[in-house]
Amino acid sequence: MSRLETSLSGIKLKNPVIPASGTFGFGYEMADVYDLNILGGISLKGTTLEERFGNPTPRIAECENGLLNAIGLQNPGVEHVVKHELPKIRALYDGVLIANISGFSVDEYVKVACAFDNAPEIDILEINVSCPNVRHGGMAFGTDCAAAGEVTRAVKEKTHKPVYMKLSPNVTDIVPIARACEEAGADGITLINTLLGMVIDPKSGRPIVSTKMSGFSGPAIKPVALRMVYQVASAVRIPIIGVGGISCADDVIEFMSAGASAVQVGAHNLVEPFACPNIINELPVKMDEYGIENIKDIIGRSLAL
């Protein structure tokens, strides 16, 4: 067994590093930059039932140690993704493929999830109940225990693949939401999505991003994400994918210590195209330094300390 190997719901990952949804397209776009097969998994661009343009530009703004985005789930729709994008990425990549699913009603989540459940290329279904950049739906499903449970239950009823619920940090207490997902049958939890944030041009007083408020990510949010992974890991038994501001091997080790079985790298992919390979190469060096034999051994070690 490789020292970096980990697993999610019985599915083996060659290492814990997964590019996060929305920061890696459908994966094949990066194939001419580096060999994708080094990656533990890939979480694909968030997909909805119908094609979406997303929000008007500007969709991006910078802030201290991070950025704000309001892409608004631009995607070509599930039918196109299953027919055209999945075969393209599967031809280039032999690791774990995660479909990232969004909807505007429970029924829509189920329809998109079923389409990916039937697609042989997909290993895990990641249900995004936490997008802050769309009106009606998105985050609304992830900020209420009953709604999060309802989406989980409905998707689980109609699908066979592991279902991971991607949660929003924009809640008073993340724990009851994660518990509601677990009770409704979720196989795992991905957290966190972006924090709702804002940047204003000091000269004009005008918000920079077209939607005014938008999703804040990057190294600045790492302590919040880490805290939430820790809290949820203390409260649920299902595996967790940790995400939020990860940009180096030390960050991966912190998140896994807090209870994550794998991690996703998001914003850092946008400023450093070699983010994931750099982290994967750095991991064994850091593990040697800290006396860690296998990365799996440290999952949740901070919970007992």
């Binding site: 343009f53 500007p58 969709r59 991006i60 195209p273």
Partner: peptide
């Protein structure tokens, strides 16, 4: 010209119709 996230096509930050 547009405000960009990545500059190499993965974030959809600068999409136009």
């Amino acid at each position: 010209e547009e405000r960009m996230g990545c500059g190499f096509g993965v974030c959809m930050g600068c999409t136009c119709e």
